[in-house]
Design a protein around this nucleic acid. Structure first.
Length: 572
RNA sequence: AGGCCCGUAGUGUAAUGGUAACACCCUAGUUUUUGGUACUAGUAUUCAAGGUUCGAAUCCUUGCGGGCCUGCCA
């Protein structure tokens, strides 16, 4: 290759490059940074990760991967009043589930407390920071407002030695919480409020999950984050838009300290219809008993999604396809569903399960005969093979698959109509049995022995419907939990008209528990959490928490697309 | 409002001064032993007004709309 001039766009499908990719590429091209590109995900260990975090990790992770760089996990543990070891463990677990690999690059802002303290001293000595004795209220008042400049603290110009001494004594534990802070000396009149002498350190007599009681002063985010990035040689520190106004401060500390110039780039968080990510709201749902906990399958937490049966790869793919930009967004949940179904379709083994059983007796089937039919495990994957599914003269079919007075577009079972039982035989409904109050209790059908395996009969008859079924005597009982959106509103956090409570958006049908479901026997052996498709019904998984061999519990991850439901809806 | 950021089909994201595109949603059809899957086709887009330019989604101005910032949270 001598020239690249002739490239006729030989890579037409180069993935669309978001503005972050471009910035990184530009930085490499301009020499602003040398390889390797290093990114990080910096969670505060004060909560469980949710679906929004999956976007944040994904953005940084992909940049590192695609530029052949490095990815760090760093816990932003600068506020021991809120943070706990439990969350550190949970976050690592959830990240691993997502498929994120950080190797030995696991860091903690608290690892840098000594260095941070040293740098704070350096800034005091340089006259760039001072100890402020004002109360919290005084500081707030002095900061001014959005439209009026702040005023200098009376302690702003105190001698360097005095600040040094006070800061030292803050560290030594001589002062109570809230009595003094260390502030950067920048500009109380700046239109950017985060530059109005931001607080760097506060007194906090609180044990830290990692440093114990070694410290009673802790750095604030602004004095810890950029420096931590710098210490780890993070080239691109990617964060959400609300930190944009902090960037000048991020850069100010780096410049004053003369340390590695990490670059902060902000992007918009990802919102999704019908869901939310506020920790406060999650807690409220739990407190009020609307969900069972942070791992409730309806929760937007990664643990909830996992329990529900979502694939980690689908989550990552969803965010990758959703893209990254700076504008506010509200992605349709349907986009996620589409990706989930697509992934599930390829890997989920097919099984048959009848959720609302209606008994069917095959009157011409030899009594006591049982045949193992070959059930195709996955039509998308020939290598998945088949499994034996026991067929007998007494079956269950889905109650909604029978209609006594069926409209023309109803392809399922009706009096005198014939359908295919998947992988088994064609059956024809001959008689409808009802109880005294007119409820249908049983169907009497005949089968055609020439349709074994569900194949077309020699006479060329056609049938439009194929039904799932289970053999009554071989069926395994299970509880099935049918989940829907937790909320009926696209934006659940906005109360509905005439209400002031967002909880009025709750979907009363977000969970429907079915206790008498009949499953084909193979389902008893599926691994908890692993996806299966209940044919014609949807994707399910055995519940990771509540399912036991004695009492099977399955969660519905998501339904199949249901065009029949649409037809019905249209028909009135 | 003081500052900053952002406005592209219904939704999300591309187009880097040169034919506005991709995915999802929606509609119609084909195939089908899942009313699934797959496939085909279709509907629909640059916030507005000026300006610069041979040419503007892109650059400039103004307006309109949305978001963020006044923790000793992150």
């Amino acid at each position: 290759m001598t020239t690249a001039e002739t490239t006729s766009d030989s890579t037409p499908e180069t993935p669309a490059r978001d503005f972050i990719h471009q910035a990184v590429a530009d930085d490499l091209a301009s020499g602003r940074f040398q390889p390797p590109i290093v990114t990080r995900f910096p969670p505060e260990p004060n909560a469980y990760l949710h679906i929004g975090h999956a976007k944040a990790v994904g953005v940084s992770y992909r940049i590192a991967k695609e530029f052949g760089g490095r990815f760090h996990l760093r816990f932003d543990d600068t506020n021991p009043a809120k943070e706990e070891q439990e969350y550190i463990d949970a976050i690592k677990e959830d990240l691993a589930w997502l498929g994120i690999e950080w190797g030995e690059h696991e860091y903690y802002a608290s690892d840098y407390f000594d260095q941070l303290y040293e740098w704070a001293v350096k800034l005091i000595e340089a006259g760039k920071a001072y100890v402020d004795d004002q109360t919290g209220d005084e500081i707030r008042t002095g900061r001014g407002t959005l439209t009026t400049p702040g005023t200098n603290s009376p302690f702003r110009d105190r001698p360097v030695e005095e600040s040094l001494d006070l800061f030292n004594r803050m560290k030594a534990g001589e002062f109570p919480n809230g009595s003094r802070v260390l502030r950067a000396k920048i500009d109380m009149a700046s239109p950017n409020i985060s530059l109005r002498d931001p607080v760097m350190y506060r007194v906090l007599h609180e044990a830290h999950p990692r440093t114990g009681d070694a410290w009673c002063i802790y750095p604030l985010y602004d004095f810890a984050h950029g420096q931590s990035d710098s210490l780890e040689n993070i080239t691109h520190s990617l964060c959400s838009m609300e930190f944009e106004s902090h960037r000048p401060l991020y850069e100010w500390f780096i410049k004053e300290l003369g340390i590695f110039p990490s670059r902060q780039i902000e992007f918009a968080r990802g919102n999704i219809t019908y869901t939310f990510t506020s920790k406060r709201r999650m807690a409220e749902l739990i407190e009020k008993g609307h969900v069972t906990g942070f791992d409730d399958p309806r929760m937007p937490t990664l643990r909830g999604l996992r329990r529900r049966g979502f694939l980690p790869g689908s989550l990552m793919r969803f965010w990758a396809e959703a893209g990254v930009a700076k504008r506010d967004n509200n992605i349709e949940f349907a986009k996620l569903e589409s990706i989930l179904r697509d992934d599930l379709n390829k890997i989920a083994p097919r099984r048959m399960a009848v959720l609302d059983p209606l008994k069917v007796v095959i009157t011409n089937y030899p009594a006591d005969q049982v045949e193992p039919m070959d059930g195709i495990n996955n039509p998308e994957d020939p290598d998945a093979g088949t499994r034996p599914v026991p067929f007998s003269g007494e079956l269950y079919i889905e109650r909604e698959d029978f209609m006594e007075d069926a409209p023309k577009k109803f392809f399922r079972l009706a009096p005198g109509k014939e359908v295919r039982l998947r992988s088994a035989y064609w059956v024809k409904c001959e008689e409808v049995i009802k109880d005294d109050s007119g409820n249908i209790t049983e169907l009497r059908c005949t089968y055609d022995p020439e349709t074994r395996g569900g194949s077309n009969p020699p006479d060329g008859r056609k049938v439009k419907g194929t039904l799932h079924w289970v053999s009554a005597n071989h069926a395994v009982d299970a509880e099935v939990r049918l989940y829907e959106h937790l909320f009926t509103a696209e934006d659940p956090t906005t109360p509905p008209k005439g209400s002031e409570d967002w909880l009025d958006n709750l979907n009363p049908d977000s969970l429907k528990v079915i206790t008498g479901a009949k499953l084909e026997p193979a389902l008893a052996d599926t691994e908890p959490g692993k996806p299966v498709q209940f044919e014609r019904m949807g994707y399910y998984c055995k519940d990771l928490v509540d399912s036991t061999p004695d009492k099977l519990v399955f969660n519905r991850t998501i339904t199949l697309k249901d065009t029949w439901a649409k037809v019905q809806k249209k028909g009135g």
